[in-house]
Design a protein around this nucleic acid. Structure first.
Lengths: 133, 133
DNA sequence: CAGGATCCCACCAGATACTG
DNA sequence: CAGTATCTGGTGGGATCCTG
């Protein structure tokens, strides 16, 4: 806990000096296994815990809890618990989180457009290795 | 080894059914700790092993080797070895890799513009927790 | 329903030493 | 210079059981 990214350069400038650091800070948090998927789902509107669980095939309850907490910690989503029986908790994007929509969409579109090519490249590469590269 | 993403939908369409799968496939490969940083560096032009090592603070030789190999396997970069003494190896983006430029830039710009807000949110969240939230 | 606590394995990745 | 090979510890994350 407690990283401490150096914030010695302006807010809206791409300062070359710690460009890599900036990327590391965003990749390690936004780019982990589940965050982007949850962000993408929540862009469509608020959702409850179990909804997110089913909308994210392969995620465990544990990882959903942890990932949501990290996103909340970073101010990308909010958590609202209703004191009802049975309990209900809703997660929704913050203003900051919503600004992630465009970059995330860009990456998803690239993935959708090029996944087939990537898979083909992988197969070709593996063939070459097996052949005795 | 050997995933096998289902490719039952069109190449240029965002098919809702396996949207999450598409994202997983791109996140696990492109979104790991080092790939995006290397992609970003190589967008500026070809580079040698040691250049990439120094341009990527914190990476080990081992991880650089492995990450480069994965990127080559996916067809995002090419590796060219020159039979010289001392040896020289140059890595450069492929056409496919170059198309990643825009989405990656988008994410980097978001990171640069909002990292300070995120760090502040984190600190505020941690304060609340410590206070006894 | 929405988590918390605990156990435990698998894999990631750093350190080190060696090679073409 | 540009890797490879091996060992090892740390930790991410699943499985399981328990709570409000």
């Amino acid at each position: 806990m407690g990283d401490g990214v150096s914030t010695t350069c302006g807010e809206d400038a791409l300062c070359e000096a710690d460009g890599p650091d900036v990327m590391r800070s965003v990749i390690e948090r936004i780019g982990d296994k589940w965050s982007l998927l949850l962000i993408r789902t929540l862009q469509d509107g608020p959702a409850r815990f179990t909804e997110l669980l089913r909308a994210t095939p392969g995620i465990s309850r544990r990882m959903l809890t942890l990932t949501l907490r990290n996103l909340e910690r970073d101010g990308l989503i909010t958590r609202e618990a209703f004191a009802e029986i049975p309990p209900r908790v809703e997660y929704s994007m913050t203003q900051l989180g919503l600004t992630l929509n465009e970059p995330v969409r860009g990456l998803m579109q690239w993935a959708a457009a090029n996944q087939i090519a990537v898979v083909a490249n992988r197969a070709a590469y593996d063939d070459r290795e097996v052949a005795g590269g």
